[in-house]
Design a protein around this nucleic acid. Structure first.
Lengths: 97, 97
DNA sequence: TTAACATGCAACGAAAATGTTGCACAACGG
DNA sequence: CCGTTGTGCAACATTTTCGTTGCATGTTAA
């Protein structure tokens, strides 16, 4: 999941899709400094990580942001961050006592 | 930042450090199926991404979880998730009208 | 002082990620 | 029907990442 977010190009794709508009591969490739094929690959990664979904439309394949995907990543970090906070808090308390 | 989280070994290291206890490289290497050198590298990545800090202690180098690091990652995702939600909401509204 | 210990640095190898190009094919439009 | 368009697949090159091993160095403790 985080690995999918850990690439600059993919982050840019997610930002673009964040407008909510379904967009074709060609559309998504514009403005990016890589070829259509590279974008296709990245989209496949994002789809595998559940950050986007597809909808075929004639000869086009439009990709859409998947809200739940980001929510899940967000939640995962929230949980870990909370655990850390608790642990560090306990440790601090222990040292003070 | 996300790239640093996107590796299984590094995630395990973060979990271990999540106990709050500062731990040496040797300690962190135990239980992991890789060599000390590999762990050292991962720790360097985590430090560069601000997820951990060091404190030299004699001949040991102890690493500590850095709460703020996770908080920042968490916050970053929160912001993007919110933007997505807004955009998708507007789009839905637009379609319904 | 000297042996044991924790670590750093550098060289190297293997695997994965990223990107490209070339060709094929189905859908659309005049 | 035929050219254009949006895409898929496969082969390949390059770069990064991940891991190892070997040796050097500072610290500790008997």
């Amino acid at each position: 999941m985080f690995a999918a977010l850990g690439d600059e190009t993919r982050l840019q794709l997610l930002v673009k899709l964040g407008t909510g508009e379904p967009q074709s591969i060609k559309q998504l490739t514009m403005d990016l400094p890589v070829t259509r094929q590279a974008v296709t690959r990245h989209l496949r990664v994002l789809e595998a990580a559940k950050f986007v979904t597809q909808e075929t439309h004639g000869r086009e394949r439009r990709f859409v942001a998947r809200q739940a995907g980001l929510d899940e990543a967000h939640h995962a970090l929230k949980v870990v961050a909370q655990q850390w906070e608790d642990a560090l808090q306990r440790l601090k308390q222990f040292i003070e006592d």
